[in-house]
Measured scan of single mutants.
Amino acid sequence: KFNKELSVAGREIVTLPNLNDPQKKAFIFSLWDDPSQSANLLAEAKKLNDAQAPK
């Protein structure tokens, strides 16, 4: 279960257009550290992506 959630969340995070590479890497490392938090980490990444969207 975690492997699928981890890969789905990881793929989504790397495609978020408004995150820079260090931010993406930080989220990916957090996913590896605790795969059970993949849904929460993906939600946080999406929030940050939205907040950094060009206005």
Rank of each mutant, 00 (worst) to 15 (best):
D50F: 07
D50E: 13
L48P: 00
E12T: 07
L6N: 04
W32M: 12
L16K: 00
L16W: 03
P22E: 15
L41V: 13
P54Y: 11
A9T: 10
K25D: 10
Q37G: 05
N18K: 01
V8K: 12
D50L: 10
L16S: 02
F27P: 02
P35K: 03
F29A: 11
V14N: 13
N20I: 05
N49R: 00
W32K: 05
A53S: 10
S30T: 08
R11V: 08
A51C: 11
P22D: 15
L31R: 00
K1T: 11
S7N: 08
A43M: 10
P54I: 09
K47P: 01
G10N: 08
N40Q: 13
E44W: 09
I13W: 00
Q52P: 02
I28R: 00
V14C: 15
A26Q: 11
K4Y: 13
F2K: 06
S36M: 06
P17L: 06
K4A: 12
Q23S: 03
L16T: 01
K24D: 00
N20V: 04
A43Y: 09
Q37R: 09
K4M: 11
K55S: 14
L16V: 00
K1I: 10
S38H: 12
A43P: 01
K25V: 11
A26F: 14
L31S: 01
K4D: 11
L48E: 03
I28V: 05
F27M: 04
L41F: 05
L19K: 00
S7D: 09
L6Q: 06
R11M: 12
K46Y: 09
D34H: 06
L42F: 03
P22H: 15
Q52W: 01
E12K: 07
K47Q: 07
N40F: 12
Q37A: 11
F27L: 06
N20Y: 06
Q23E: 03
Q37V: 04
R11P: 03
D33S: 13
E5N: 10
L41N: 03
T15N: 15
V8I: 13
P17H: 04
N49E: 02
K25N: 10
S38N: 05
S38K: 08
V8P: 12
N40W: 13
I13V: 04
L48I: 06
Q52D: 03
L19W: 01
A43D: 07
N49I: 01
K55M: 13
P35F: 04
F29V: 10
P17S: 05
P54H: 09
A43L: 13
I28S: 02
Q52Y: 04
L19A: 00
D21W: 15
T15K: 14
W32P: 02
D50S: 08
R11Q: 10
N3V: 12
Q23G: 01
N49M: 01
G10L: 15
E5W: 12
P54V: 10
S7E: 12
L48F: 03
V8H: 12
K4F: 13
E44R: 05
F27T: 00
E44V: 07
S30N: 08
A39S: 10
S7M: 14
R11E: 08
K47S: 09
L16H: 03
E5K: 09
D21R: 09
P17M: 08
L6C: 14
W32E: 05
K46I: 10
Q23M: 03
A53P: 05
L19D: 01
K4R: 13
Q37F: 04
S36Q: 07
P54A: 08
N20G: 05
F29W: 12
P54K: 09
I13A: 01
E44H: 05
T15V: 08
P54T: 08
P35V: 03
A51R: 08
F29Q: 14
S30Q: 15
P22Q: 15
K1W: 15
E12L: 10
A39K: 08
L31I: 09
A45S: 02
K1A: 11
S30P: 02
R11S: 08
S38Y: 14
S36Y: 08
F2L: 10
K1M: 13
F2C: 15
A43V: 08
I13Q: 00
A53T: 09
P22G: 14
A51G: 05
D33F: 13
L42N: 02
N18I: 00
D34P: 04
S38L: 13
S7Q: 11
Q37H: 05
K25G: 05
L16A: 02
A43C: 10
L16F: 05
S30R: 15
N3H: 13
Q52A: 05
I13E: 03
A53W: 04
V14P: 02
F2S: 09
A9F: 10
L31Y: 01
V8S: 14
D50G: 06
E12D: 06
D34I: 02
N40H: 12
L48W: 04
L6A: 13
S38T: 12
P35H: 01
L19Y: 00
S30E: 08
N20W: 05
A9N: 05
G10S: 11
K4Q: 11
A45Y: 01
S30Y: 08
A9Y: 11
Q37P: 02
Q23A: 02
A26M: 08
P35Y: 04
T15A: 15
A9S: 07
L42P: 00
A53H: 05
K4H: 12
Q23Y: 02
Q23F: 02
K47I: 08
L42C: 03
N40C: 11
E5C: 12
N3F: 14
D21T: 11
I13D: 01
K55N: 13
L42Q: 03
K47W: 08
P35Q: 04
K24L: 04
E5V: 11
W32Q: 09
D50M: 09
N20M: 07
N18V: 00
D34F: 05
D21I: 10
V14T: 09
S38R: 05
I13H: 01
K46S: 05
E44K: 08
F2N: 08
K4W: 13
D50Y: 06
L31V: 04
E5Y: 13
P35C: 03
A39H: 07
